[in-house]
Design a binder for these strands. Structure first.
Length: 753
RNA sequence: UGGGGUAUAGCCAAGUGGUAAGGCAACUGGUUUUGGUCCAGUCAUUCGGGGGUUCGAGUCCCUCUACCCCAUCCA
């Protein structure tokens, strides 16, 4: 993990490792076994196991099974299958939160003893009511007053099953007025008399996610607990539990990333379940579903899914990935892997009138650009089938295939020409009578005939009948909202496709490219040699189809007039703020924006006044205070400042006297906030005084110009952007000390010369 | 409405004050016995809007806007 691009999570891990915060990284993939895994899980699996692999750490597979009413062993198996299928190794054992019920209970008891948790006996409705709303604080239940002894007794009896469900809950005692709703005395345990799929009947209380998850992470020695964005608000509880219990380090920290969304499909458990239970698809492994089982059954390779997950990256912005990206990954993977064979989806009979007998043609399984060996014999005789799409009686412009006037090559065989089109009573084409050119045999063609296209075909006598299931997007729109958006043509079953015999007799693979059609997979469930069934994995790119009927492209990007953005109202200033503002603008002649920033912030105003008292240079000081000091205040708060107004005044003075450049001033300021040293000392120690002597700067510029002839040419060619590049290079060469104004002038002068 | 997040091309996404990476999609052209692959090329004067600071801002400051998450005894 060095030269490859890092996502923000890997950056955090690397930094923590470098800082010695942990000895090794330890992640976990913690699904609740209450549904079948989908490609969103794959993203998380690839992330968690991938980070562990990249940094030589470990990744646990943990079933987060704290709700006995929802979970089931079949989901555990499905989850394990998914991880295994993707090629990751969870080590010795699968972890279960349910294995920690005992320890978790002990931690809860500890919290009660610390008076940080209490048994609440409000009912569900009351609890909701007491919680308040996002704008109003909640209020604490009277039961929060219970003594430690009473809480201990009650909690134990809850565990023993003495109470009805809902009679009591265990809650953390945090803050009912917290602006974070999650922190308003979150529930830790609830009573459930349900039987747990793993631990059975023993327990009558079950821990909640917020209590169990952080502690499970801690107990397993997890270092980085990665979860999706919707848990951002839960992070405070995560930290609270670990801190309140005073657990000894190292402890895990939670980081959040955006979950995967993809267009033309749905990803939520609820919606997926609706599709399956409603019979809109054929089970959890329906190849149209974005479930791991679906992709697997459809014929996707684990490699392609992993590549996809790596390509889309990990970030914090909610986004919807184009399914075309996934399709690219599987095509790209299969292109170099699978044999090419011929299958005719919509057969049209062709009789080659001047051909007699039969022969076996040599045909490689792989095209010239795939470095793999292997071939089969292709039977050829008088009667063959081609695809109906590959003949056109009245061809559109640009049609390369067979027409009454245009010959075509039969892939791996001869060139044929159409002699007669046979139609039925309704005028449908039922057969083509054709002629072949004996000297045009593939590999030894001396006919000199040029054709535009080579099409797939099968020999009538030896071809096998096959069922081909052609899948299209499950939904007809990018962001489906409900069942109404289902694509009625998402599954097309072709019963009478014809396939060359070698596919069944030789079985060179289970995945194939059906030449010129796409990639297909022998269905692992329904396939038999007697009744072959193939699933379409993905089609080939088809630039002819695109040309023939162009998609209704959303009107080309006309330089649209920028949508005017509504501007909200700015809160009016208080009298006090207004007073400061007036003073700053009149007395000190500050720019209104800067004055505004300062005036609206009491601490900044005060800081500013103090600094000006030390050095009478209001404008310079105001700029530093309103920009840089404001940032420090924002980031670190105003307590524990390492510098005071006096230091800022000194900095301003050096700036005013041009001892240092504004660029260096930023650097000095950083140093000042980090170490608390006086600006003069920093400048002195690091030798940061500005270089303004042109004689000193000029040779450096010459050097930069000499080293970048390409960019000089580009600049002189009119690429004005490069000006900044040269200035930057010169500044870099001088450690930022060159006076940028002088550099600018000199660079311009020399470049224009 | 309080709090927590996010905003860079049609879709993802790098980018930590000095030339707006990369992938997908799209579009040219070349090679091709797959209208595939491959190869060469095009595709952001600009980073949600407006101001400010700076020689220089996608990056720092102020402000506005839009979207997502939180008031399950789910996770």
């Amino acid at each position: 993990m060095s030269e490859t691009k890092k996502d923000f999570l890997r950056a955090i891990v690397e930094e923590d490792l470098k800082a010695g915060k942990y000895e090794a990284v330890h992640t976990r993939f913690p699904p609740e076994p209450n549904g079948f895994p989908h490609i969103g899980h794959a993203k998380s699996i690839v992330l968690n196991f991938g980070i562990a692999r990249d940094f030589n750490g470990q990744c646990n597979l943990r079933m987060d099974d704290t709700d006995p009413t929802k979970e089931d062993m079949k989901y555990v198996e499905a989850l394990k299958d998914a991880v295994k299928w993707l090629g990751f190794d969870w080590g010795k054992k699968v972890y279960f939160t349910s294995d920690y019920f005992g320890k978790l209970y002990d931690y809860a008891v500890e919290l009660i003893k610390m008076e940080k948790a209490y048994v609440d006996s409000l009912n569900e409705e009351e609890i909701r009511e007491y919680r308040g709303t996002v704008t109003e604080p909640g209020r604490r239940s009277k039961y929060a007053q219970r003594s430690v002894e009473e809480n201990l007794d009650l909690f134990e009896r809850m565990k023993n099953g003495e109470f009805e469900e809902g009679a009591h809950v265990l809650r953390a005692k945090i803050d009912m007025a917290s602006p974070n709703m999650k922190m308003r005395d979150p529930l830790l345990y609830r009573i459930r008399h349900a039987s747990h799929y793993r631990v059975g009947e023993g327990w009558h209380v079950y821990p909640m996610y917020d209590f169990a998850h952080c502690l499970s992470d801690y107990m397993e020695g997890i270092t980085h607990s990665l979860c999706t964005l919707e848990f951002e608000n839960n992070r405070d509880i995560y930290d609270w539990v670990i801190e309140t219990l005073g657990l000894k380090p190292p402890r895990p920290y939670q980081y959040e990333f955006a979950r995967l969304n993809m267009n033309y499909t749905v990803m939520s458990k609820r919606k997926l379940l609706e599709l399956v239970e409603g019979g809109y698809v054929n089970g959890w492994d329906d190849p149209r579903l974005p479930t791991i089982a679906g992709y697997k059954r459809r014929g996707y390779t684990p490699e392609s899914i992993i590549t996809f997950c790596e390509q889309i990256g990990v970030a914090k912005a909610n986004s919807t990935v184009d399914v075309a990206q996934l399709e690219f990954c599987i095509r790209d993977d299969l292109n170099t892997k699978v044999p090419r064979v011929m299958c005719v989806l919509d057969p049209l009979k062709v009789t080659i009138e001047n051909y007699e007998g039969s022969e076996l043609l040599d045909a490689s399984y792989y095209p010239h650009d795939v470095p793999k060996e292997g071939s089969r014999k292709l039977p050829f005789s008088k009667e063959i089938y081609i695809d109906r799409n590959d003949f056109s009686e009245h061809p559109p412009k640009g049609y390369y295939r067979l027409t009454p006037e245009q010959p075509v090559r039969l892939k791996h065989a001869y060139i044929i020409a159409c002699k007669e089109v046979v139609k039925d009573a309704e005028g449908n084409i039922v057969e083509i009578k054709a002629e072949y050119y004996p000297d045009s045999k593939s590999g030894s063609d001396t006919s000199g005939i040029k054709v535009r296209s080579a099409i797939q075909w099968v020999d009538a006598a030896s071809a096998k009948k096959a069922e081909v299931r052609v899948y299209d997007r499950l939904f007809k729109c990018e962001a489906p909202e409900g069942l109404d958006d289902l694509n009625p043509d998402s599954l097309k079953v072709i019963k009478n496709a014809l396939i060359e015999p070698a596919v069944i007799e030789e079985k060179p693979d289970v995945r194939f490219q059906f030449e010129r059609e796409g990639y297909f997979y022998a269905d692992p469930v329904d396939y038999s040699d007697e009744n072959p069934v193939f699933n379409k994995i993905v089609g080939l790119k088809d630039s002819w189809a695109k040309k023939e009927k162009p998609k209704p492209q959303p009107a080309k990007k006309q330089k649209q007039p920028k949508p005017v953005q509504k501007e909200g109202e700015v809160a009016p200033m208080s009298a006090e703020e207004q007073g400061r503002y007036d003073r700053f603008t009149h007395e000190y002649k500050l720019n209104p924006e800067v004055a505004n920033t300062l005036a609206r912030d009491e601490k900044l105003s005060h800081f500013f006044d103090e600094a000006v008292a030390a050095h009478e240079s209001p404008v310079t000081i105001a700029n530093i205070v309103a920009n840089d000091v404001a940032r420090v205040f924002k980031e670190n708060g105003t307590d524990s400042l390492t510098f005071g107004a006096k230091e800022v005044a000194e900095l301003a003075k050096m700036l005013d006297e041009e001892t240092i450049s504004s660029k260096i001033a930023k650097q000095v300021f950083e140093e000042m906030t980090a170490t608390g040293k006086a600006p003069e000392t920093i400048v002195e120690e690091k030798g940061l005084k500005q270089i303004s002597n042109p004689a000193e700067i000029a040779p450096i510029i010459d050097d930069v110009i000499a080293k970048n002839p390409d960019n000089v040419a580009k600049y002189r060619d009119g690429n004005q952007k490069l000006f900044g590049f040269f200035v930057g290079q010169v500044l870099k060469a001088t450690g930022g000390k060159a006076n940028p104004k002088v550099v600018n002038d000199l660079v311009r002068e020399k470049l224009e010369a």
